[in-house]
Design a protein around this nucleic acid. Structure first.
Lengths: 366, 366
DNA sequence: CCTAATTGGGCAAACGTTTGCTCAGGCGCT
DNA sequence: AGCGCCTGAGCAAACGTTTGCCCAATTAGG
């Protein structure tokens, strides 16, 4: 088609369609069988290199490999899965696909899964339990070998190998990847207290988020340990399932409306911290001079905020990788072998610009 | 384990394992066949409600439905796909899973696909062509019905239905969802010029990003139309494939190092704009008083930056939905029916705090 | 020379569905 | 009475692999 004089630098893409058999359909073992005059069984054995193929002479094997290459033979994973009872597919459940938290975990999961030869379906459910249930059914029908659920409370209890990330909901045979919340909260509060803060406001997570309760327990524990008492008027909760900065913005506005002074704010996550900072600034408060803010997660943009965000880092990517590895282990393990219930990872405090000692007048007042 | 006096509100989860047949394996048509004394064929027909099932009396149908419910029968999608030649699965290729741009498109894709009964594999490739190629093979082996590629240059030319988002690479039979780049750039530049800016710096996209070239062409066109000349010293390019704010940060530093004054900066995307703003601030420049910054995309955090970001909004979610719909259409269409080559969507300028008229002294100087 | 092992593969079942074809009995119509 | 049609299904092939079992021919060993 193209004039042969022209150098073919533009369209040097491999054309898969030519490499397959001429009638469009991809080559199957039967195609090769017809071409080689061998049975599909022999071809399958050779291509898979099973021990039984040892009795087949080298020359025949070479012919088979050559034909496979010529016809661009790709084993049909559907058929293979059906026969083999293992699909090498897993399902990943996330609340939202567009949120900072889940996507970082996802990156780790992907890395861990792909290197073990697995491929994954992604489904988001917006924390709606009927969608979670539908997703679980969908995945089971698709014969996935396992499920990883991030920040998801699962209504169905399937016997599929399952790993959860940040879901302290104890379930039979489910391994949960968790952050050490106690330690995480201590890092944040000790930092603020060490700077001299006493009037600390808290923004709790949404009720549907599985980290919310344990985090809150940890906060109460750490506060009493540090001899800080939490003023109920200085505790707000994120509301609404929008995966955006708005819930934090509105929560901070509610805190301000309570007319109770505070010099520091500890938020449920970085995204809400960013929203909260905007609300503070709109109220004429400077961060950190008037109010210090500590976030949670250390999402990518945290370091690039203005001011950059002091935050408790979760090793999200690592957690994803751990989840993937644990799942693969659970899939390939003996069914009776009991999986570990928890894998706990440690947080890290990242001090940036959004925290400093409280203003002098406030401290004098208290 | 739990005292029975306690109300069982905690663990009222449906237990799928009990509902399946007692020997663990999920129920198949054969299971129902054995239980009902009917052939698998009859059961399949009734459950699928095919026309041929009309001849089967209501009472038998009811027995079948009852048994299906009792055994919690779920058709095996693998087997169905194998037989039917359509898997109801598609593959989605993205550069990174943790980036603002792709995830928003992904949200739209998911919505569009799920409502048509499709489920998708997600694979990221970090713009590395050997990974893209591997992903394409992987997906073809898995018998996906089609592929959606976001900001991805595909080395293989498969005959699978394919939709690209922001890949102006014209390929046979591939539909591309595109932003009207000319219009987008005009919106940004006209805004800056209207404010009085003349010395405008540009941060181009990475060379591997498929939007980079068309955007640059559009910028040159719009600049000449607006009688602005672009100083080559005020053009930097994003470098490095890190999906973070850093490339923008470093690009802005290079612009500053060129020692050529500018009063406005138009960046390739919001993420790099945020990085660039940090570099400007570190250099002692105020945004927008000293330098106005216009981003691109309008990712979720753009409105919550400090200052909030003036940016060109791409309707990313819509583009994802369009991609999904176009793919489904192409999958179900007659093979000879030629798909449309392009679907163009329109940008929108969102003016926020990061732009204002240039400083007086600068204007006096020019 | 007889037996046994090795070589070189083939047959067919199985995974779980879907679907074209067949078929027996009953009923209505002419 | 004969014909055709409707009812109510069943049989079996097909999708593409994998794998347990079988078998014929050759070779090795005794």
């Amino acid at each position: 088609m193209a004039p042969s004089s022209k150098k073919v630098n533009k369209s040097d893409k491999t054309d898969l369609s030519d490499a397959t058999s001429r009638h469009g359909a991809p080559a199957s073992l039967a195609t090769l069988s017809a071409h080689l005059g061998l049975s599909v069984a022999a071809i399958s054995r050779v291509l898979n290199g099973v021990p039984a193929a040892k009795s087949i002479p080298k020359t025949t094997q070479d012919r088979i490999f050559a034909a496979a290459k010529e016809f661009n033979y790709r084993p049909n994973a559907l058929a293979r899965s059906l026969r083999h009872g293992r699909s090498m597919m897993v399902g990943v459940l996330v609340p939202e696909v567009s949120e900072g938290y889940a996507t970082l975990v996802l990156a780790g999961i992907e890395q861990g899964l792909l290197q073990s030869g697995y491929i994954y379906f992604l489904i988001s459910h917006h924390h709606r339990s009927e969608l979670i249930e539908r997703a679980q059914s969908l995945l089971m029908e698709r014969s996935v070998d396992g499920i990883i659920a991030i920040d998801t409370i699962m209504p169905l209890h399937s016997r599929l190998p399952t790993i959860t990330v940040s879901c302290p909901d104890e379930q039979e045979g489910v391994t949960n990847i968790m952050l050490n919340q106690r330690r995480a909260v201590e890092l944040a509060l000790d930092h603020l207290v060490g700077l001299g803060h006493r009037e600390i406001a808290i923004i709790k997570g949404q009720s549907f988020s599985s980290d919310t309760e344990p985090r809150w327990q940890a906060i109460r524990h750490a506060a009493s340990r540090a001899q800080i008492k939490l003023n109920p008027k200085l505790v707000a909760q994120l509301e609404g399932d929008a995966p955006s900065h708005e819930p934090g913005y509105f929560a901070a506005q509610r805190l301000l409306a309570s007319d109770t002074p505070f010099t520091a704010l500890f938020t449920f996550n970085d995204v809400s911290a960013i929203g909260a900072i905007r609300a503070l600034r709109e109220a004429g408060l400077r961060v950190p001079q008037d109010v210090s803010v500590v976030g949670f997660d250390d999402v990518q943009s945290a370091a690039f905020q203005n001011p950059s965000l002091t935050t408790v880092r979760q090793p999200l990517r690592t957690m994803g990788m751990l989840a993937a590895e644990a799942l693969v282990r659970q899939i390939t393990a003996h069914p009776d072998h009991p999986p570990s219930k928890q894998l706990v990872v440690d947080p890290e405090l990242v001090v940036r610009e959004s925290t400093c000692p409280p203003p002098a007048k406030k401290r004098a007042k208290s």
